[in-house]
Amino acid sequence: MNTTKHSTKLNRREILFSLGAGSMALVTLTMLPGLARADKTAADAEIKKILGGKTAQDGRVTLDVPQIAENGNTVQLEVAVDSPMTEKDYVKAVHVFADGNPVPNVASFHFTPASGKAVAATRMRLAKTQNVIALAEMSDGSIYSTQAAVKVTIGGCGG
């Protein structure tokens, strides 16, 4: 499994309590809400492409992500699809999107019956709190999906 290496960049949590962070960083941050709306649209468009007019069904897909990211730069992700993985019935691909990222495509995993099971894990970078969406394309053309919210929080005030 590939683990994408990201360059480090200030996240919101780091901006908040960093003494050196000047107004430049803060200006960038205040622009995020506008970007977020655009990103969600981008994710919707990508998902539409995969659906191709079909409706995604619930179930079969398990998405394991943290509720609150410890580090938005590397968020663990594991996706599993319940499937016999036979020639007749298998998972062709699993697509993962993050609807608040500037580029919503996180990863696409392709499987064959020889894969044995449809499980994949990687790490992703999340710019801010958002939904992670997984779509599984089955060999019979049906599509299953699930989603989970991952918070990228400022933190710092635990009991």
Binding site: S23, L26, A149, I154, G155, G158, G159
Partner: peptide, 30 residues
């Protein structure tokens, strides 16, 4: 440090959600 008004609100919103998110799994307990 200097914070903009927008950023101050963002801080309060963030901490409030750690406390008052209706799903306990998103609560941090402070």
């Amino acid at each position: 440090n200097e914070f903009t008004g927008t950023f101050l609100k963002e801080v309060l919103e963030d901490v409030a959600d750690n406390l008052f998110n209706p799903d306990p799994y998103y609560q941090q307990g402070g």
